[in-house]
């Protein structure tokens, strides 16, 4: 199902956070959203999973305007992994994953046998089936993150929205999660901080800076040294991956300064220049 952010603008407390953001996420593709801290990535995602109402613009789901759907109906189509860390209460892993079925059920209606299988499969895909009867509060951050992704998959979404899904995950689970997301065949909009993972996982990448889209295209088109310098303020080389050919970003730290004092004074003068 196509997802389209159409002229999305959000203000929070009088500050513009997202400015006229237009981004297409074609059916079945994985589109990444990258950008520096505070560039409005999470805020844009919030509008897609209905936690925030945009001040202007629309989110289109196929031919439907998302705001014309009830929360419940849009939750049947769009699942999200938010930045919230899980739960206040000590639900078991199994119970949290089962809550992914909430938008498909009426009231306290029990899960059908098919739905229980679905939840079990989602837990196995995310490698958390062995934790099924553990309380979520006693899991490590990475385990909990995988439980939350399993919950989103149990929702059977057509569009999956992921806000920094690789947070807290070890390298193996980062790679597994993104390959799973890629192979799931659903439309995915994902915020990632790791540009190399974004390059490997995404069909297209959009770059946000100060709330506005400054570049969008395939990883090859977007991840260039010039853009990295301009948007992220870093010096980096971009080389093709030896096996896949995906652009990979190699960072270079600035020359080592003498000690901390010189770092602080350099930073101060740098800030002066910026302001």
């Amino acid at each position: 199902m196509d997802l389209r952010l159409d002229g999305l603008s959000v203000e929070l407390g009088g500050e513009p956070i997202v400015r006229a953001l237009t981004l297409d996420v074609p059916d079945g593709q994985v589109v990444g959203l990258v950008g520096p801290n505070g560039s409005g990535k999470s805020t844009a995602l919030r509008c897609v999973y209905r936690a925030l109402r945009p001040d202007a613009g629309r989110v289109w789901l196929g031919a439907e305007d998302l705001s014309s759907l009830s929360l419940r109906l849009s939750a049947q189509r769009v699942a999200a992994l938010t930045q919230e860390s899980g739960s206040d209460l000590d639900f078991t892993v199994e119970e949290v994953v089962a809550l992914g079925r909430a938008p498909h059920l009426r009231g306290n209606q029990a899960l059908s046998a098919r739905e229980r299988d679905l939840c079990r499969n989602a837990m196995e895909l995310l490698d958390v089936a062995h934790l099924a009867h553990r309380g979520v509060l006693e899991l490590s951050g990475g385990e909990r993150q995988r439980v939350l992704v399993a919950r989103a998959l149990a929702q059977e979404p057509r569009v999956l929205v992921l806000d920094e899904p690789t947070n807290h995950l070890d390298v193996r689970h980062q790679v597994e999660l993104l390959s799973l997301v890629r192979g799931a065949g659903i439309t995915v909009l994902v915020v990632l901080h790791d540009l190399n993972l974004a390059s490997a996982a995404c069909d297209r990448i959009g770059v946000l800076s100060e709330g506005a889209l400054v570049a969008a295209g395939t990883p090859d088109e977007v991840l260039t040294p010039a853009l990295l310098r301009e948007v992220f303020g870093i010096e980096a080389s971009v080389v093709p991956h030896p096996l896949t050919g995906d652009p990979q970003v190699l960072y270079r730290l600035p020359p080592r300064p003498g000690h901390l004092d010189s770092v602080m004074s350099r930073k101060a003068s740098h800030d002066d220049q910026r302001s």
């Binding site: 209905r50 936690a51 009830s70 699942a79 938010t82 919230e84 899980g86 809550l99």
Partner: peptide, 10 residues
């Protein structure tokens, strides 16, 4: 699960 997650679950 949190207000935002709740919104994403309808």
């Amino acid at each position: 699960l949190g207000d935002e997650t709740a919104a994403s679950l309808g």
